[in-house]
């Protein structure tokens, strides 16, 4: 089973045993004057091996996006306190000078976001925006960059690519815009691609096209992928390893097969039990998770999920439960009272 966590192929030059991205005890606190400080991310450890696909699943406010933004230094400095460490290929990203970090971002690490319309510049053509990256990071001439941009668009499935280079973002559909974002992200053959809800703004049939594209591109180019999403279905088909986040911490992480076959955390199990499944008979009642994601407890006082948890006991209060292996060595769980086999909903 451990094969699921190992990269499909080791990338040459990679230190043996050292993950491509290594995040340790990352904590992000937003504090503005006169307001209560909010700890959005509360001690995250994350390893992404070269060429592997890692899913981060959580609801709004779980800290899944902030984790990636903080790791790449995209949160700004004002009112944000970041601690812990983030290493990419051995280099410390959190303490890197800004200009060096900019060279890594975009070239070695690329990111795509949920809403391509707000990530693309509305007053520049698609071609201008793609060639800019190629000229800046790969040192191509303008003509070379234009040719390369056209072939990039072709590779993400945009036909008539030479003409498309002259289009503005508003002239493209949502699916096309997301394809352009993926083309831009892959322009410099990054070793790590972070996709933050890449298909949430898209229709299902378009979303299937984009996920299929991501699946084939990361396999072909050996790019490591971190997929951030709220949709368990998306990670089930795409990710080698899945981390489930709740209120700023990882509560369960495992290779996808053990995770979906045996979700031990009441939250993971609850998420799976609360969504209707197309492949199951219709009459199965949905079992909602009571309360709402805002009914949370600071981790220092106990398990943040305990106010909504049906398996809560007195010992859930009093500090965060440790993230410890259960059964499978790669299956980590942060829970005092995991869901027993008979009560799991899978």
């Amino acid at each position: 089973m451990t094969t699921a966590t190992t990269p499909r192929d080791a990338v040459p030059g990679q230190l043996a045993g050292e993950p491509l991205l290594k995040v340790r005890d990352l904590t992000v606190t937003f504090a503005s004057r006169g307001r209560r400080a909010v700890r959005a991310v509360d001690g995250i450890d994350l390893d992404v091996a070269a060429g592997s696909t890692v899913g981060i699943v959580g609801e709004s406010g779980s800290g899944k996006s902030v984790t990636s933004l903080a790791a790449l230094g995209l949160l700004g400095k004002r009112g944000v306190q970041i601690s812990g460490s983030v290493h990419f290929d051995g280099a410390d990203l959190l303490n890197m000078p800004d200009d060096e970090l900019r060279a890594v971002r975009g070239k070695e690490i690329a990111m795509i976001f949920q809403d391509p319309m707000s990530s693309l510049n509305p007053v520049l053509t698609i071609g201008r925006q793609i060639t800019e990256i190629l000229v800046r990071h790969r040192g191509l001439s303008k003509q070379e960059a234009r040719d390369e941009a056209a072939s990039l668009l072709q590779s993400v499935g945009i036909g008539d690519s030479v003409r498309r280079l002259r289009s503005f973002p508003h002239q493209l559909s949502g699916g096309m815009r997301q394809r352009v974002m993926i083309a831009m992200a892959l322009a410099c053959a990054p070793r790590l691609l972070i996709a933050d809800e890449p298909t949430t703004a898209l229709d299902v049939t378009i979303s299937a096209q984009i996920l299929e594209l991501l699946r084939t591109l990361v396999a072909e180019t050996q790019t490591a992928l971190v997929l951030i999403t709220h949709d368990l279905g998306v990670v089930a088909g795409l990710c080698d390893t899945v981390h489930v986040m709740y209120s700023g911490r990882i509560v369960e992480s495992a290779p996808r097969r053990p995770l979906f076959a045996a979700p031990e955390h009441p939250y993971t199990n609850g998420l799976l039990a609360s969504v209707p499944r197309l492949d199951q008979p219709r009459g199965i009642p949905l079992l909602p998770i009571p309360g709402s994601p805002s009914d949370t407890l600071p981790w220092a006082q106990g398990c943040a999920f305990s106010p909504r948890c049906t398996r809560r006991e007195d010992d859930c209060l009093g500090g965060p439960p440790p993230l410890a292996p259960v059964g499978h060595p790669a299956h980590l769980l942060r829970c005092m009272h995991p869901v027993p086999t008979g009560e799991r909903r899978v």
Binding site: L232, V234, A236, R256, R257, F260, R277, D279, V346
Partner: peptide, 10 residues
Amino acid sequence: AIPIPDPEVE
């Protein structure tokens, strides 16, 4: 096109 939260099925 609808993803199903089960790797075996997917």
